[in-house]
Amino acid sequence: MNLFGYLGDAANWAGPGGIWERIGEHMGYVAVSLLVAMIIGIPVGAAVGHYRRGQVLVVQTSNAARSIPTLGLLVLVVTLMGTGLVPVVLALTVLAVPPVLNAAAVGFRDCDPDAVHAARALGMTPWQVVTGVELPLALPLVVSGVRSAALQLIATATVAAMAASGGLGRLIVDGQLLGPSGYPEMFAGAVIVGVLAIAVDLLLGAIGWILRMVTYRRGRLTLTTERQVAV
């Protein structure tokens, strides 16, 4: 059996341990880890960018986190906490936080100062400035950070199989145990991971493009309002 034969066999897709179940597990790890990374990275990055303090610390911390090998971190966490969802999500979150955090910090820091000044001139509170002006302007860059983190997670979530968990990494690990007869299963796991990464990248890229268009129109409206206030 070759790769196409394995993927074309309906029996390999259905039932416990089937491809659909592995895809669901894989994307579940990615979704939970990405959500946790966003909950941590976006507020912290927003605070750093808004107040323009701590940028160097954020960059250094992010670079240090990126240098940690995910597999080694996963082995350490599994040794301390045992197998299951939590160790996998913890290891993947460490990988996902840096790009989200950096993008949020840069996005809020580089907001159009004219738009911010116009909002303050209209009497908006600091919180309203952050949520109503800076956040919409920073969103395209924040989405790019989320996009980068998502792609890394999809590729790296295969290590979940090393923690006796599920995901598409099981196809690679289980296929390896079968020897040459398991090569189609291994290749199938790798191909599906690649297809998922491309699909998610296109989806998030489209969202980023829409947000850029909305931000552009919002910026033009804000500048028009500023001129009216100045008059």
Rank of each mutant, 00 (worst) to 15 (best):
S181W: 13
R52G: 06
S144V: 00
Y183L: 11
T70S: 13
Y216Q: 07
H117Y: 10
V89Q: 01
L211K: 05
L177H: 08
S148R: 12
Y6L: 10
V48Y: 03
L80D: 09
I192S: 14
V59L: 15
L73V: 08
P43G: 13
L196K: 00
T225F: 11
I154S: 05
Y183T: 12
P184F: 06
P180G: 14
T215S: 12
I198P: 01
L153G: 04
H26W: 06
L80E: 08
S62C: 14
L141E: 09
L73Q: 09
M38H: 05
G15F: 03
G182A: 05
L85M: 07
T93M: 03
L151I: 07
F108I: 08
V32T: 01
G205S: 03
A31E: 15
G189V: 01
I40A: 15
A11F: 03
H26S: 00
R217P: 03
L168E: 01
N102H: 03
A160H: 03
W20E: 07
T79M: 04
V59Q: 13
M1H: 08
L177I: 10
A164P: 05
Q152P: 00
V88T: 03
A46T: 08
A65G: 09
A163Q: 08
Y6R: 12
I207Q: 02
G167Y: 02
M38C: 14
A46H: 01
I172S: 07
A47M: 11
D9R: 08
D9S: 13
N63D: 10
N63A: 06
I23E: 10
T79D: 05
V159P: 04
G169M: 00
D201R: 12
L221C: 14
P140N: 12
V97A: 06
L223D: 02
A103P: 02
D174I: 08
L80K: 12
V97Y: 00
G145C: 06
R109I: 03
G15C: 04
L85G: 04
A161D: 05
L202A: 06
N2V: 03
L74Q: 04
S144H: 04
G132H: 04
G123A: 11
A119G: 09
L74R: 03
M1S: 11
D9A: 15
A10P: 09
G179N: 14
I154D: 02
Q228Y: 09
A164N: 15
V195F: 13
A230I: 15
A157I: 00
A119Q: 07
V106A: 13
V86W: 04
L137Q: 14
I154G: 04
G123P: 03
V30S: 04
P87D: 07
L3T: 05
L85T: 10
W127Q: 09
R220N: 06
W127H: 08
Q55W: 15
G72N: 01
A149P: 02
L168D: 01
W20R: 10
P136I: 06
S144D: 08
A115L: 11
V173M: 11
I198A: 04
V44Y: 13
S181E: 10
L76P: 01
P136Q: 07
V214L: 12
L168W: 01
V143L: 11
D110W: 15
T158C: 09
A118H: 09
